[in-house]
Amino acid sequence: MNYTCSNCGGSFDVPETVSVVTCPYCGLTVNIKVGKLDFEHYFYPAIYDAQTAYGRLKSILSRQFGVPKGFSDQINLMGRVLHYIPLYLFYVEGRSKGGQEVLEVEYVALPALKMLPVPIPQGYSFPVRGKIYFKPQIVKDAKFYSPTVSIDDLEKIARARVYNRFSRELDLAGRGLEAKIESRCEGLVHYPIWEFRYSYLNYQFNGFVDAVNGEVLYGQYLVSTMHRTISMSLGVGLIFAGAIIGLISGLALSAPLIGLIGGVPPAFAGAIPLFMRGAYKVQTYTLKVFGTYEREASLGKEIIEAVKFIGRIPI
């Protein structure tokens, strides 16, 4: 089906299955069945321009382990695109009716595309910075995407996300409770993400930067031969160290073989990340959503739990 934009006059093809479309030229979003939009539509302006965003990408790549010296100064920018990704925002509320109170609420933002042109990390929350109403002048030179997933399908996904936690809490509160999950669409947001294509020696890479908060989502880089050799040697060295330490502690208690068996497997586990770094010349940086800090805190907690559990085992 062909549709002509009422704002810029551009015409484009629209799949039969969707009703909300975004003009790829100017970004105007309408419900083509009713001629307007039945919920709010916003844009996030790209706060980080191409140059600053590219600078952010380079600075993140330069701090990676094993990146060749001067990598960020020597890469050539080959192309860039500002992608505007459609996201639907939902409010989902699960509530028990009468009797015991059980409550679960969440705001969920879901990309409305079947195939995402940009790698958005799982669980990525979209940041706090001003969104604005549609203005044709702020949105030129960008690539707009019409939602290709219907709002109903996405709403089901949003509800399912809350359902899992809600049903567990319902079960714990008591059987036979009547409950209901309600949801509503809070609007459509077009969200900007920069894509950069760059080359180094004979290699071509790409990287993605959130244009609202400058967060680098994804970036490829090269690991120098020297660093690959170092990581490989460290990995091998760790395995040997594990074997020797195992052997020594085994000998101390006059069971060398058992000591060896105990020392080697952890050494292999520790060497995996080192071998991974050494095995591939092209490496990928991806944003860790929950942050290293939180992961370490939760790992620490799990270790304490495990130690507590060991204490309960009969000797």
Binding site: G262, P266, A269, L274, T292, E296
Partner: peptide
């Protein structure tokens, strides 16, 4: 023995990963 093996592997894997990390928090 199983627990100490598992604990050793987790500790070793955790620090092995940190060796090649780009940033500390």
């Amino acid at each position: 023995s199983l627990f100490s093996l598992a604990a050793g592997c987790v500790v070793s894997w955790f620090f092995g990963g940190k060796v090649v990390e780009d940033v500390r928090i």
